[in-house]
């Protein structure tokens, strides 16, 4: 379980996270939703230690994250940010192999190779494995990065807007992969999402942010309703049940 206790983050005078406390349960997909600048990505970065915090604590399985050494942390929790521009030219397989670094320290053993193959299979990238990343489409590239995270084989997987710039087909593919990760391998996935309907259809738990605070958290039924969403986004919403899913209209 990830436990966030009264975390504060400020840039200058502006508080981007104001006393945020949250528990993220194991074996579920938890989505962070909310308008731009609500602090969702910032919280994700703080949990994964990419940036520092100005107050509060984060616990990973009861252990204070600041005290965990870098290597063990990388075996427990992985993060994928939205901008994945690389300065080096890599093939898919090379990229995925990097995911094994916390275990192999650069020298791949048979066990690592297994993990790499499995990750490629999981993301259906076997045929593209020896292509360079710049030869792939946006959706395939995003899947390659997810394959790297899968190869890293961490219990917790944090993703910052993994559906950014992807078309419907690729978005669905990626969400299905994530669902399988949770269902089959028992991973815990935390996603920052902008598409509310994707969040509604694929999450177990939703946390709604606004102005650096958590407005409301709960399962899909509790969050995806007119009152909560209008409060969070300050826009008019119509929420309907379609094929047992809650779908929002806000266009």
């Amino acid at each position: 379980m990830i436990e966030v206790k009264s975390v504060v983050k400020q840039y200058g005078r502006k508080r981007v996270l104001d006393n945020v406390s949250l528990k993220i349960e194991k074996g579920k997909i938890t989505s962070f939703i909310g308008p731009n600048g609500a602090g969702k990505s910032t919280l994700l970065s703080i949990i994964s230690r990419l940036i520092g915090k100005d107050g509060g604590q984060v616990y990973l399985d009861g252990e204070l994250v600041d005290g965990i050494d870098c290597n063990s942390f990388a075996r427990k929790l992985s993060i994928l940010r939205q901008s994945n521009h690389l300065n080096v030219r890599l093939t898919v397989r090379e990229l995925v192999s990097f995911g094994r670094f916390p275990y192999s320290e650069g020298k791949l053993r048979a066990e690592d190779l297994d993990h790499i193959e499995r990750a490629l299979e999981y993301t259906q990238l076997k045929e593209e494995a020896d292509k360079y990343l710049d030869e792939l489409s946006g959706g395939q590239r995003q899947r390659a990065f997810i394959a790297m995270v899968i190869a890293q084989d961490t219990e917790y997987i944090l993703l910052d807007e993994p559906l950014n710039n992807l078309d419907v087909k690729h978005s669905v593919e990626i969400m299905k992969i994530l669902r399988r990760l949770v269902g089959e391998l028992g991973k815990t996935v935390v996603i920052v999402m902008h598409d509310i309907n994707f969040a509604s259809c694929y999450s177990d738990y939703i946390v709604a942010f606004n102005k650096g605070q958590i407005v409301k958290e709960g399962n899909v039924e509790e969050i995806i309703n007119k009152d909560v969403l209008e409060d969070v986004y300050d826009t008019n919403f119509v929420v309907q049940d379609i094929m047992n899913r809650r779908i929002c209209f806000y266009y």
């Binding site: 994964s48 870098c70 990388a74 075996r75 992985s78 993060i79 994928l80 940010r81 990097f98 670094f101």
Partner: peptide, 8 residues
């Protein structure tokens, strides 16, 4: 970011 993620 990738470096930190991979435990460096």
């Amino acid at each position: 970011e990738n470096a930190i993620n991979l435990g460096v």
